[in-house]
Every structure is written in C-alpha cells, then in structure tokens.
Amino acid sequence: MIFLNIIICEDNKEYIEKISKITKTVFEDRSLECNIKAFNIYEEAINYIKSLNSYEDCLYILDIDLKQEKNGLSLGREIRNIDEYKGEMIYVTSYVHQMQSVFKYKLKILDFIDKGYDIENSIKEALNVYIKIYKDKIENESLIFKVGGNVFIIKPSDIICIETDKSKKKIIIYTIKNEISVNLTLKEVQKDLSNQFVQIHRSIIVNKEHIKMIEDINGDLYVVLTGGMKEIVSKRREKEIRACVIQ
C-alpha cells in the first residue's frame, strides 16, 4: 500500500485550499492514499516535519513569500537539513523572478510553478511526475507482500521489527504506520532483508535503524525500538546487539 505525506506551507488560505483540493483529486484519481497537512506558519510546518519518522515518502509544496520573518527558501533549506534530501520539493509562487534563488539555495526541487499561469494543470503535471518517481523508487527498493486480495509494498526503512506469531504460524511485520500479518516464516523473509536488519532472538528480527537504546532488566537485555516497543535479546546475541548500538 502506497501512502504519501504531502506537506503544504503557504500564507494564503485560499491557495492552501486550492492546492489541497487539486492534490487530493490527483491522488484519488490514481487510487493512492495521501496524508495532506497544510500550514500557514513556518514554525508549525517545521515542527511537524521534525516529528516524522521517515522522509522518503514526503512531498513539500512551498510558497516563497510566507510574509513572515523567514521565507519559503529558508524553510526549504531547513527541511533539507532535516530530511537530507530524501523527500521531493515543489515551489508554488507569484515571485517567478526568484527562481534562481531556489537553485542558489541548493534545494533540489522537482518543479517551480507560477501561480499566475494555469496553476491547476501545472500542479497536476508536477504531482503526476512525483507519483511516477516515487513508484519507480519504492518498487525497486521495497518488499512486496500479498495478504488475501491486498498487496502491501513496504520500504525496508519503515519496518521496525518482524516477529514470529507462533499461535498462527505467521509472521507479524511491525512498521511505523501499521502491522501486517503474513503467511511466511522468519527464515523465508530474512533472505530478502539487507544487513540493516539483525536477528536478536530466534523469533525476532529488528531494524538496526529503529533501535533507540538497550536496557538491562533483571539480568536480561532488551532493545527499545521506535514507538516504545521492547524486545528481548537472546544471550548468545547480546555482544552483537551491543555493538550495533555503539556503532
């Protein structure tokens, strides 16, 4: 399942509504789910972006003139410091003469749209390009699982851990967004995982990127994962897991 985060920052509420409506229509027409968050205040947009767990699925649609102390170019640069160029960025503005400034800031943008020239079609075209880029990227990098009539496309970076469900002879894949039960064994799925995953117990594999800390509890070692999940580490794997966290 493809689920995308669309973050809009625009000082004009009329344009916020217009851009949000166009975006929602494009994604619905393509049968894709998206979470649209719109802001007219710089700090609120940044705080929301900082709260996200991943950025590969983010698209930022920004205005340049936010009529605040900091403008949209400063916002773009701060976003790039946070997301490390993992998301895509579109500027929608009336100030087309500032296009060169976007490139001077080294923001790596997908498109620069003039509000005064057929904004609806321009946004639709940019969004369709974004969807194609994103689909190509995740289909090359992601794991695909079929569950009944549903197909789940999951980025490895979104997986927190994978655990054997002994009672149902399945595995449960815990992601930053949901959990999925699949008719596979841990061994079967392990062959498709990169070395960013480590087995901490015979029934649990975790994503090293989601290990927040380790804890000793009554003589047993646990990893604390994204979202506060705690999983026990087998005695024979303690040294390896401690090394992962130190790294």
Rank of each mutant, 00 (worst) to 15 (best):
Y174R: 03
E84G: 09
A45C: 15
N207V: 00
I159Q: 00
Y174T: 04
I131Q: 04
V206P: 02
S142D: 04
D83N: 07
R237W: 10
M89G: 05
N53Q: 10
A126F: 04
D63Y: 07
I36S: 04
D114N: 15
D63L: 06
N218H: 03
K230P: 03
K208W: 12
L107M: 01
F103S: 07
E179I: 06
L225D: 07
C244V: 15
K106P: 01
D57E: 13
F27Q: 08
N128C: 09
K132W: 10
Y222M: 00
R236M: 13
Y15R: 00
E88N: 10
I64L: 05
I36G: 02
N207F: 07
N140T: 12
R30I: 08
N218P: 01
S20N: 13
E17K: 15
K168N: 15
Q68R: 09
I214V: 14
S157L: 05
K169V: 09
N12W: 07
A38D: 10
F103Q: 08
K115T: 05
A243W: 06
I138W: 00
I144E: 14
H97F: 13
K67A: 12
Y15S: 01
S181W: 03
I36M: 02
Y105V: 09
R202M: 06
S51Y: 08
I153M: 14
K104H: 13
I180M: 11
S234M: 08
L143T: 06
H210M: 09
R202D: 03
C58K: 07
L221S: 03
K208I: 13
F39D: 02
C9T: 06
Y105R: 12
K135A: 05
N35Y: 14
